[in-house]
């Protein structure tokens, strides 16, 4: 059937472009058929529920539902921007995101490169397995353990400090230490986990390339620079763009557990703020508005990064 359609269209030059489209669609029909389940999934489970973000423009309450709740326009956004702590929340969120991007993002890459240089396979595998273990500990466990080790008055670290004749040195109740402590815990917990994807990408690099360069007498660092890194470049670019999409979404549980009266000035972020004012008080619409704002920032960043990477010869995502 599709064949006949194509031939008839071919006879009419006016419809040339359309017929080209039809020809492509027909030739690649299996590609599109394979795409259908995925499209259906995204419509059903992503785009239909996405209507829910509209409650950011309502005074939503569960009893009236989406249809019955009152529409209030940009009221919740105005409130967010007028919030005295808005600037502080934005600054803190951006700072932690920056730490995540500058330190948290490259760490798995460096680790993966280091692992890639290991020659003994068993050692490589054992280390891989060990460094991804912390990812499976919930933040509650991580933070509690950190507290007991470093903060607890007769704990290891404090006893050691005391044996040196120094005063108690607090990490968790010191605003200056909050960001370094936060990122160290993130690095400890998640950089091993992050290597998995890069190791998979590294597996795709042809060993012959290394052999050839070894023949040329290239040093190990040169090999890393000229072969290994280019081999995973597109993975790095894509992960970076994706990372920007949720750059303002910080791990709520982690920060919530570290947050206290002393470090709130630097540790309070949008997510903890929303928890305090929104979820505890049942202000769905306001929380959604804050989420929408964070999303818009993410969208702008992703679009920019995507455009930028295309400009520099990478494929980008879309």
């Amino acid at each position: 059937m599709s064949h006949s359609t194509i031939s008839t269209r071919h006879e009419r030059p006016v419809r040339k472009r359309r017929s080209a489209l039809w020809r492509d669609l027909s030739r690649d029909r299996w590609i599109y058929i394979l795409l259908l389940p995925g499209i259906a999934y995204f419509i059903l489970f992503k785009y239909i529920p996405m209507g829910g973000v509209l409650i950011a423009f309502q005074d939503y309450n569960a009893f009236s539902g989406f249809g019955g709740s009152e529409w209030v326009g940009f009221k919740h956004f105005e409130r967010l921007f007028a919030e005295p702590s808005f600037y502080r929340l934005l600054r803190n969120t951006l700072m932690l995101s920056l730490y995540n991007l500058v330190l948290g993002f490259p760490a798995p890459i460096i680790l993966a490169l280091m692992l890639n240089e290991l020659r003994m396979k068993w050692l490589k595998r054992s280390i891989q397995t060990m460094i991804y273990v912390p990812h499976f500990m919930s933040w509650v466990v991580v933070v509690t353990m950190f507290f007991v080790l470093f903060e607890s008055y007769d704990g290891l670290f404090q006893s050691w400090i005391a044996s040196l004749g120094l005063d108690k040195f607090t990490i968790m109740m010191n605003a200056d230490w909050f960001r370094p402590m936060y990122i160290l815990q993130v690095l400890w917990r998640d950089s091993g986990w992050g290597t998995v994807i890069y190791l998979a990408a590294l597996a795709g690099i042809s060993p012959e390339l290394y052999e050839a360069s070894r023949m040329d007498g290239a040093s190990r660092l040169r090999q890393i620079w000229h072969i290994t890194l280019p081999g995973i470049r597109s993975t790095i670019v894509i992960l970076f763009i994706l990372k920007l999409s949720d750059v303002l979404d910080l791990s709520f549980e982690h920060i919530f557990l570290l947050l206290n009266a002393v470090n709130r000035d630097v540790a309070d972020v949008f997510d903890t703020y929303v928890y305090r004012v929104g979820l505890l008080q049942g202000q769905m619409s306001y929380s959604t508005a804050v989420g929408l704002f964070k999303g818009l920032v993410g969208l702008v960043l992703v679009s920019f990064a995507n455009w930028f990477s295309k400009k520099f010869g990478e494929e980008g995502i879309f």
């Binding site: 995204f42 992503k46 785009y47 239909i48 529920p49 996405m50 209507g51 829910g52 973000v53 409650i55 994706l242 999409s245 949720d246 769905m284 959604t288 989420g291 929408l292 999303g295 993410g298 969208l299 992703v302 995502i317 879309f318």
Partner: peptide, 9 residues
């Protein structure tokens, strides 16, 4: 990518 950024809740 849009669905990664905006979710219904």
């Amino acid at each position: 990518v849009f669905t990664m950024i905006f979710q219904g809740g």
